[in-house]
């Protein structure tokens, strides 16, 4: 019998490190009750944005998707509707970041990427909610409110991310 040892690369370690950060924030945030049900700040996305700007899109995608997977396992929402919402939001925002990163690169900073990601996140979640859970016209009335919150929260976490990036040597 032969044993195969996988030697983690520097990049693997870095992904794990950053994902752990994001997961920590994710869990911490899940513990704080929200004044509006179903709406949270999404502070874990700060890590995704910072990763994107420092290490590029591939790593940001890893960090974001690992965060959703491991975070849901830790909280206990894995494969639940909450997980479907969380995953669809993360996938949408990662795709959005990928496209914009390819097209615009460093022409946009943390704040811009954060807003873009927040919009995509909300749109992805909303589509999942609409097609999978509540296919009712009335839900569309809530879309502007959700998008307003996405804009505000995206702006906030973008400002936090840009402050964070400045402190990274």
């Amino acid at each position: 019998m032969t044993t195969v040892t996988l030697q983690p690369t520097r990049e693997d370690m870095r992904i794990a490190y950053l994902a752990a950060f994001a997961i920590m924030i994710h869990i911490f945030e899940a513990a704080i009750p929200s004044p509006f049900p179903g709406i949270k700040l999404g502070l874990a996305n700060v890590i995704t944005i910072a990763t994107l700007l420092i290490f590029g899109w591939r790593m940001a995608a890893w960090v974001s998707l690992l965060r959703v997977l491991v975070g849901s396992l830790m909280i206990g929402t894995f494969l639940s509707p909450t997980f479907a919402m969380s995953l669809s939001g993360a996938v949408a925002s990662v795709l959005m970041l990928g496209i914009c990163w390819k097209l615009l690169g460093h022409h946009i900073g943390a704040v811009g990427y954060s807003i873009l990601a927040a919009f995509a996140h909300m749109a992805g979640q909303f589509m999942t909610a609409y097609y999978l859970f509540i296919p009712h016209q009335g839900l569309l009335k809530l879309l502007p409110v959700f998008m307003t919150l996405a804009l505000v929260f995206g702006l906030l976490s973008g400002i936090i991310a840009s402050a964070m990036i400045k402190r990274v040597p």
């Binding site: 615009l104 022409h107 946009i108 900073g109 943390a110 704040v111 811009g112 807003i115 873009l116 919009f119 502007p144 998008m147 307003t148 804009l151 995206g154 702006l155 973008g158």
Partner: peptide, 15 residues
């Protein structure tokens, strides 16, 4: 950056 401001403005218009 200017790009950030543009994104923000486009976002506000979109909302």
């Amino acid at each position: 950056k200017i790009g950030d401001k543009l994104v923000l403005i486009i976002g506000i218009v979109l909302v």
